[in-house]
Design a protein around this nucleic acid. Structure first.
Lengths: 191, 191
DNA sequence: GTCTATACTAAGATAGAC
DNA sequence: GTCTATCTTAGTATAGAC
């Protein structure tokens, strides 16, 4: 129960930003959710935007970890792609609120912070592009537009944060499996 | 040059909301972009949220029109699905700013307005579900999870508003074609 | 590192003239 | 239907004690 104040603050920020959006969230609201005074927020983060950046950075780093772990997994290129999509969708479903914040509030970051996050996003895209290229290289995947297809595959996972709600139609595992199957189907050679 | 004030206002709101997010946009900013005084905004919309609703409603109605027109097009079930995805992605690419607003600021609407928009979204999902079901019925599509797959297909189009920028790598037409191809591939029977 | 109190600024919305 | 002027509330952030 005695969560460090710093973690309570980040969790409170995630909840508030996810529910109300960054611009409509007040630092007073975040402070109240973290059970501290409005002033205490500024001990940990100089500005509200800095708090958003902390949430966004941690979120992107974890998503990238999940994706790169799967990219290093055993198996054929197709199995590796399936593992990546499965893990990426699972993560986004299990962390849909964080996902909503980091995906939708990207534009609220300062240019400097945006650049840091943009780099992490580029790395995710490159991981998927490399995985697809490996499949193409072994002749088990057919891809005409590597960049566009990599983005489309990642879109399956990312876009679920827009509508996913825990306890509804799908579990995170089911969505992971579904999206992995659909991605593999997208890449199957025609012949 | 003599655009009706009402249209100038909606366009200004779209630009402002897309650039800064709903919560961070001030009515003063919208008014300035529409070249009118802050007070003039309230002649047309009672609240800032009402202005967001107007933008969101018009955007959703147009996206729904595009999708349902394509759903009524000539051709086989697979051709119809391809036409739907192509048109839907083209529209989102050509209207990526509106798309960003209506997709990301859904949570900022009042419960009453949210319900209206949610209904339009359900109709889009049903259109795609029906199109997939037709393909399954004729044995030309293989779909295990109708609801999940319909959502995944729509995700290709919707998620592009997150990263699309005019004049970059892809044109709206290219993206429409790419996504239509990928969708059809997702649905191809295994055998 | 947390509090109370508050400075300073700017927001959403309205009043009333034209 | 648009303006100028303004009311009222509430926001981000800081000061200074503990």
């Amino acid at each position: 129960m005695s969560t460090p104040a710093r973690d309570r603050l980040l969790d409170a920020a995630i909840e508030a930003f996810a529910e109300r959006g960054y611009g409509s969230t007040t630092t007073r609201d975040i402070a109240a959710r973290a059970r501290m005074s409005p002033a205490a927020v500024y001990v940990h983060h100089a500005t509200k935007e800095d708090l958003l950046f902390a949430v966004s950075l941690r979120g992107h780093q974890r998503a990238l970890d999940v994706l790169s772990s799967a990219a290093r997994s055993e198996g054929s290129p197709v199995e590796r792609i399936a593992a990546m999509v499965r893990a990426f969708s699972q993560w986004h479903a299990r962390n849909s609120r964080v996902g909503r914040v980091v995906q939708y509030e990207f534009g609220a970051l300062t240019p400097e912070h945006r650049a840091v996050i943009a780099d992490l996003r580029r790395r995710m895209e490159h991981l998927m592009q490399d995985a697809l290229a490996a499949g193409v290289g072994e002749g088990v995947c057919e891809v005409t537009d590597l960049r566009g297809t990599a983005r489309a595959v990642l879109s399956l996972s990312v876009d679920l944060v827009r509508w996913f709600e825990p306890g509804r139609a799908h579990t995170p595992d089911e969505l992971g499996q579904l999206h992995a199957d659909l991605a593999v189907r997208m890449l199957r050679p025609s012949a």
